[in-house]
């Protein structure tokens, strides 16, 4: 076990915590959507779960993760097989995948939204991306979420404006399905790590980032969380992890993902 680092950013803390989500996944396709989740998936593939598969975010399955950002002209991508978008669905529907995405809203059932906000569905106040692959991801395989701004506009009271993913909502459970069929894993925010391990799949605080108080989490969440009696501090990066992260992100894109690139330990 490498020595723990003392000086690290919140982005690096989240990368390491996100990577840990894949520890017990075995040989599956991991997709991290966005810079931090992608570095996290790459870190896991390089260090903690060597069996992971991942793509180049374009059309190839890789034997080695690509560093993020511009790569040198002589860089040779280590392809393993063709993995165009149509074939991604063959993998998704087989269930052999774990994704970390970043929704704009999440509710107490773990349902999430990337489609549109406010107004009516016919005329939303803010049109966003559309449901993309979220409905299929959520019902087909494991799903984690990295949400960098923990507040009540994101973790909403009531249901999401447009529910793009199936969650632990008995009222929406399709006939013949069980809530336990839904596989929502880890929710990472700028404040804490959560999962759905509370009673009846209630969202539960798993760890608080260094220096974060539980009251800050509850005040910034629009629904009731399961709060265990003792909550550990989120495990920080090791020096070895930081060194691998630096190789996977040579242009330090990670420092530009969170506003003002805050330190991992609150001052």
């Amino acid at each position: 076990m490498s020595e723990f680092a003392t000086d690290y950013s919140l982005a690096e803390l989240l990368i390491c915590a996100n990577a840990a989500a894949y520890d017990d996944d075995g040989e599956i396709l991991v997709t991290g959507i966005g810079v931090l989740p992608r570095i996290a998936a790459s870190l896991a593939m390089k260090t903690s779960n060597l069996d992971i598969m991942m793509t180049d975010s374009e059309a190839w399955l890789l034997a080695e993760p690509n560093p993020v950002g511009q790569r040198p002209d002589d860089f040779i991508q280590k392809n393993e097989t063709w993995m165009g978008f149509s074939r991604i669905f063959d993998n998704v529907w087989s269930g052999c995948r774990h994704i970390t995405g970043g929704p704009t809203q999440m509710d107490c059932f773990g349902q999430s939204n990337i489609s549109c906000l406010g107004g009516s569905y016919e005329q939303p106040k803010v049109q966003m991306l559309g449901a993309r692959g979220f409905p299929g991801n959520s019902i087909s395989h494991a799903n984690s979420f990295l949400i960098p701004s923990h507040n009540t506009r994101v973790f909403v009271e009531g249901e999401c404006d447009m529910v793009c993913t199936i969650g632990y909502n008995p009222a929406r459970l399709p006939k013949g399905h069980q809530l336990a069929d839904v596989d929502l894993r880890m929710v990472l925010t700028n404040l804490c790590v959560m999962d759905f391990g509370g009673p009846d799949f209630q969202m539960r605080v798993v760890s608080l980032h260094p220096g974060v108080n539980i009251d800050e989490v509850t005040q910034n969440t629009g629904f009731e969380l399961c709060i265990p009696d003792t909550i550990p501090v989120t495990v920080g990066p090791t020096k070895a992890q930081l060194s691998v992260i630096a190789q996977l992100d040579p242009h330090d894109l990670r420092s530009r993902q969170l506003k003002d690139n805050p330190p991992g330990v609150r001052i």
Partner: peptide
């Protein structure tokens, strides 16, 4: 397909229907 079940994809698109399977007890 099971894709879309449990989400608002069904609610906002009344033209999408669910069917029972002749082979299992799921919709």
């Amino acid at each position: 397909t099971q894709v879309g079940l449990g989400t608002d994809v069904l609610n906002v698109n009344p033209e999408l229907k669910v069917v029972d399977s002749p082979y299992d007890d799921k919709e």
